[in-house]
Design a protein around this nucleic acid. Structure first.
Length: 104
DNA sequence: CTGCTGACCCAAG
DNA sequence: CCTTGGGCCAGCA
């Protein structure tokens, strides 16, 4: 029942909200599920502009390398959020998508 | 409407 | 393995 009239931002919101705790997914996957497999970039742009307190688990979205694309404080915050959900980071801050990847 | 930016991805060297 | 370049798409001034 996903309305095709909804903006890309609304679709991304819906997809990210469907990610179960303890799992992570990539921007490319979210973009594909949102209806635009080539708009992986825009997924980040949407999350960046998201309002605070949206209850959206944006921290469960990482890049294809299994790492956090953010820098500085945002990076630390996302890392802590993932650790709190049981996500394990390997050496170099790489997450094993084979184990923690959503739909994998 | 035009142009620039960007929490990406893929291919090639 | 790492670096460079190009493409793609949506949001915003």
């Amino acid at each position: 029942m996903e309305s095709t009239d909804a903006t890309f931002r609304q679709r991304v919101f819906h997809v990210v909200a469907a990610i179960p705790a303890g799992k992570v997914t990539t921007y490319g996957e979210v973009a594909q599920l949102a209806g635009s497999p080539r708009a992986a970039r825009q997924v980040g742009g949407v999350l960046k502009k998201l309002p605070p307190g949206s209850s959206l688990p944006w921290h469960r979205v990482i890049n294809r390398h299994g790492k956090i694309s953010l820098r500085g404080e945002d990076f630390q915050r996302q890392r802590q959020a993932l650790l709190a959900e049981g996500i394990q980071f390997g050496v170099g801050g790489v997450i094993d998508l084979r184990r923690f990847g959503w739909r994998l």
